[in-house]
């Protein structure tokens, strides 16, 4: 199956590890990517604050170029690994479909560059969704050569892949499970912690550092409370904030967190038998090697299936009715 591929600015450089590992994983899984030619920036969270129509036209150019790719002789699917790119592409497509007035104006702007875009003609996908939904856990399991036994991983979804979920991909935008399942298939021990869809602060590190550091601290604290060895992310912004600002969080709050933050594709690559270098390990600020050294040859013997109590001082997990003891039910 051939997909259009929109790497986005972050994957070109700052999130190069994501790009490289995504390509390694795609190759193993038989996913063929064809990069959208001459794509431009999606505008992140900045363009809509300055000029809405120009913001939509900026994204519209990418959609128009992707629609022209004519892959598989049918409706194109465009894969964006970055959360912000994924959101902006699907939001523009969605709002153009919802609002004929917006579609008309975006198309008038695109016409100035000899382009046009019919809403709905490109289906925007996130890489995680493609791997879980199109490829499936079974095919992923077949590729696992070096299972991640003994590694405690905290799947971190962040915001924009699960919310606002214009395409209704996720059954539960506040408690998604698709990456949890994927990491289990790789042999890792998945940590169930309560902040997996909380925000990393986005661009606030640049605008109000205080605000951002507190948001990052909450995430690191929760992952540490639940004894995660690694935080696993699907977004360049989340990776940057949690990884590159971890030292500042420690300084600011007198904390001592050392939790590496890796992309889910990096862990997939390692489990598939790729070398750490091939999947970009070493580009992170918080060294991932000590955590990765915890991976064992054999599955842990006494792997507890039972849900354990939250550690002292940690945010409680939302409790389900069936877990109440001695209630009236």
């Amino acid at each position: 199956m051939k997909y259009g591929y929109y790497p986005g600015c972050s994957l070109e450089k700052n999130a190069r590890a994501y790009h490289e590992s995504a390509l390694v994983v795609a190759k193993r899984l038989g996913i063929e990517f064809e990069e959208t030619p001459d794509w431009n920036c999606c505008g992140a969270t900045e363009y809509f604050a300055i000029n809405a129509l120009a913001g939509y036209a900026l994204v519209g150019r990418n959609l128009a170029l992707a629609a022209r790719q004519k892959l598989n002789g049918q409706g194109n699917q465009l894969v964006a690994p970055c959360s912000a790119c994924f959101l902006n592409l699907s939001k523009t497509d969605h709002y153009m479909a919802e609002s004929p007035e917006l579609a008309e104006k975006v198309n008038s702007a695109l016409a100035a560059g000899g382009l046009s875009y019919e809403p709905g003609s490109v289906r925007v996908r996130h890489l995680l969704d493609v791997i879980v939904d199109d490829i499936g856990y079974m095919t992923v399991a077949e590729q696992v050569r070096k299972p991640l036994y003994g590694l405690r991983v905290a799947p971190y979804y962040g915001c924009l892949v699960v919310r606002p979920d214009y395409q209704h991909i996720h059954d539960e935008p506040e408690y998604p499970l698709c990456m949890d399942g994927l990491l289990k298939v790789l042999g890792a021990e998945v940590v169930d912690y309560p902040v997996k869809t909380h925000c990393c602060g986005g661009h606030m590190t640049q605008i109000s550092e205080e605000t951002a550091l507190e948001m990052i601290r909450r995430l690191l604290k929760s992952a540490a409370d639940y004894r995660a060895d690694v935080i696993v992310t699907l977004c360049p912004m989340c990776q940057l904030n949690l990884d590159a600002y971890q030292e500042q969080v420690n300084k600011h709050f007198g904390a001592d967190y050392h939790i590496p933050v890796l992309y889910f594709t990096q862990l997939m690559g390692l489990a598939f038998g790729a070398s750490p270098k091939e999947v970009g390990i070493g580009k992170e600020f918080v060294d991932a090697r000590p955590a990765l050294a915890k991976i064992q040859e054999e599955p842990p013997q006494n792997a507890k299936q039972k849900r354990s109590r939250p550690p002292k001082g940690a945010l409680p997990m939302p409790s389900m009715l069936s877990h109440h003891k001695g209630g009236g039910q």
Binding site: N51, A54, A57, S108
Partner: peptide
């Protein structure tokens, strides 16, 4: 494209 968009907006 962006110039036209700003004009329209």
């Amino acid at each position: 494209i962006l110039t036209k968009a700003k004009e329209l907006s």
